[in-house]
Nucleic acid binder design. Structure first.
Lengths: 172, 172
DNA sequence: CTTGATAATCTCAACGTTGAAATAAAAGCA
DNA sequence: TGCTTTTATTTCAACGTTGAGATTATCAAG
């Protein structure tokens, strides 16, 4: 034990508190070691996305929609329902996002399919331009978040989370 | 390659889409492998906490405050500012939470210190009872989330996230 | 066709959070 | 003491999401 790698993060402190306060169920706290860290890191990541989005005049949720459309490839157009499934929010949120984004000229509603219930959402030229630039900033910010960690560890940890997500049915 | 462990989760599909659509910057997507999974898993965890909290008549944020107070140990009382730091939300949110929780009889505001600016928040008997029962459900739900994954992998993954959090200064 | 059920989107009030400004008390300093 | 700065909490309007219900269109029988 050289002590070099023995710092401890906030979750260590939290689990330590629980061990003192609830020694009776200390054996049941092992999931907290992973899931509490997931939650804390997610807040940091959320903040990063929010900052990047704000720098380009859009909201977090709007950035989300832009990336979904961009990565869907040509013709950069998806039914509202597809955005709903891809974004993990409720239908009301999607409608509101599209309303705001349409007002900003980022996307446009297209109603021309055979099924007149569906509304397709298409990226405009302006939307393309915004996400093109914002994505570069986004990836840079992401890289910055992990700059202090060994890349191999990042990969291993990502792999661990993938197995958790797969076991939860988060599959394509 | 037997194919047994080659399922792929949603993030695999997302990164695959990006690789096709933006092959020019495909090398910059490696942080997404970790951080996108952190975000997706965090949503699942959030939903679990929300469900557990709702089953006991409280909100997600109120559950958060109860756990902070409980694990702080006797006398189960902290200044509002301590809740603020521990909860990763803004000051307005803490005031609102305490207002609601006081109305429900879960906590009480105590103004009796030397510094009359500070307000201490103390767990009531009722609050104690609620978090005592809710915590058991919470831990059971957490264990359920990880039931399909090898425990050793959970530990390794948690360790990886700890190093990330430490590098980001998320220390006690 | 007509009816009933299913599907896709939108509406809207309620809710919790944000973020900046306000309030009030304590600490530092002349 | 008097004055300024700092600290702790509260206030409040704006914001985005939720979640249930309404709307409109399609599909499946009969």
């Amino acid at each position: 034990m050289t002590g070099v790698a023995e710092m401890g993060d906030v979750v260590d402190a939290i689990v330590g508190q629980w061990a003192k306060e609830r020694p009776d169920v200390v054996e049941d706290f092992w999931p907290v070691e992973l899931l509490a860290r997931v939650q804390r890191l997610a807040r940091v990541v959320d903040k990063s996305v929010k900052t990047t989005a704000a720098a380009h005049g859009i909201e977090h949720g709007e950035f989300d929609v832009l990336t979904i459309l961009q990565r869907s490839g040509p013709p950069y157009m998806l039914p509202a329902g597809a955005l709903l499934k891809a974004s993990m929010v409720t239908s009301g949120a999607i409608t509101n996002r599209i309303d705001r984004m349409e007002a900003k000229g980022l996307v446009e509603r297209v109603r021309e399919g055979a099924d007149r219930r569906t509304v397709k959402i298409r990226l405009t030229e302006h939307g393309h331009e915004v996400i093109r630039v914002a994505l570069a900033d986004h990836l840079a910010a992401y890289a910055e978040l992990l700059a202090g960690v060994d890349r191999r560890l990042v990969e291993q940890t990502a792999e661990g989370l993938r197995q958790v997500l797969e076991s939860l049915g988060d599959t394509a």
